[in-house]
Amino acid sequence: MMNVIETHELHKAFGSFTAVDRISFAVAQGEIFGFLGANGAGKTTAIRMLCGLLKPTSGAATVAGCNVFTQPEQIKRRIGYMSQRFSLYEDLTVAENMAFYGGIYGLRRREVRRRADELCRRLDFGHARHTLIRDIPPGWRQKLAFLTAIFHHPTIVFLDEPTGGVDPLTRRQFWTLIYEAAHEGITVFVTTHYMDEAEYCDRLSIMVDGRIVAIDPPETLKKRYHADSMNEVFLRVVNG
């Protein structure tokens, strides 16, 4: 299978501080890859490099076939991105947000309308098309943000804590969308602090102090650390 992400000794230092310490890993097409780590372990810095937003200090990496050093702009066109902090514009309507994101990714107006129709139908959301995002309940906002992030059918979507502070029911509805996207062939790269969600991933990596110290399917990790849950695995790995 083709790899959507490949990194080799990818490294980022800010002055004397090493944020990401020579990480090497690969993510296959259609995989749901969980990128775990404690706060401050270097996850966000790594994601910013993979999204073409931050130039690495050394090493090598390709994302969706493009080189992070020389082709950051091409990468941006091939990926989707969503985080809890930044997703949709609150003072634009649902339809306007989609038109905006579609436009950024160079979709034609007719195509934007077609996909917006499809998306609203899928979420059973037609009635709220012209509602401002700020007036939409948080759980719905999250789901819309995700579907907007994959509106242009990216090769891979990066989700940075997409379910932070979200209740258990809404989180599960959100993961149903993730499963569907992966099933359609979109690679999902996701960070989360909910260890039950980590169990939903095909494979996981755990970062400690800038380095990837474990990378495997959740079942393998649980066996290796003699743990019943990913929560136990995480506590053991991070505590050293």
Binding site: G37, N39, G164, H193, M195, N231, F234, N239
Partner: peptide
Amino acid sequence: DEPTTGVDALSRK
């Protein structure tokens, strides 16, 4: 008010 949102599993514990 949701003091541990966005906080890793170890810090939560």
